[in-house]
């Protein structure tokens, strides 16, 4: 049921020409996604999605739309080619899922590879009951260091992109 709602808001966000409505729909979509993560047992992910997707992304989107313009112009050509491309790719991908293990199967390859080790040993080795935190910070510490660096770089990049422009405009005026 949630999946259907998610799909509907996603399609609507792309369909609408009014970008403001699109951005709001994207926020609703993120909130629905967060609910879906809770249903699928991913509470940490739900937390992040609710804070980032529904809160921060919407605010940034609204600011960007406000700085550029809120209406998309009507299309000049019929989008048959992208539509066909998307449909063919989607069909091939669905064909690929036929071999995938059933949803929720405890014997799926993803479930028997490295996850049981984490679940059995994480608390004894790190003293942290939340396995997600211990895997994030300890077993995959390198990975997380990389992610933090990405976020840091993005922040710096935005400051340079938007702040540098302002300085140039000021020199133009003087």
């Amino acid at each position: 049921m949630l999946l259907v709602f998610v799909l509907a808001t996603g399609i609507a966000a792309v369909w609408l020409r009014n970008l403001l409505a699109s951005a709001m729909l994207l926020g609703i979509y993120s909130l629905l996604m967060a609910a879906l993560w809770v249903v699928l047992d991913a509470v940490d992910v739900a937390f992040t999605e609710a804070a980032v997707g529904a809160g921060l992304t919407t605010a940034l989107m609204l600011f960007a739309i406000w700085l550029t313009g809120r209406q998309e112009k009507p299309p000049v050509r019929k989008p048959w080619f992208p539509l066909a491309g998307a449909l063919i790719t989607g069909g091939l991908l669905i064909f690929g899922t036929i071999d995938m293990p059933k949803f929720g199967d405890p014997q799926a390859p993803a479930q028997v590879h490295v996850a049981p080790y984490y679940l059995e040993n994480a608390e004894a080795q790190t003293g942290v009951p939340n396995v997600v935190t211990s895997v994030l910070a300890s077993y995959r510490g390198f990975d997380t260091l990389g992610e933090v660096t990405v976020v840091f770089t993005a922040g710096m990049g935005v400051v340079v992109l938007l702040g540098g422009l302002r300085r140039r405009r000021r020199t133009d005026e003087t």
Binding site: V45, E49, L60, F63, A110, A115, L119, V132, G157
Partner: peptide
């Protein structure tokens, strides 16, 4: 328990996705 590994991967991916989105909007 559900598989914690995928949760970890996606948790970081969400934060990175908002970072890329911010750079794109900028």
């Amino acid at each position: 328990y559900s598989n914690p590994l995928t949760h970890v991967l996606i948790l970081t991916a969400i934060v990175v996705s908002v970072a890329t989105l911010a750079v794109g909007l900028a």
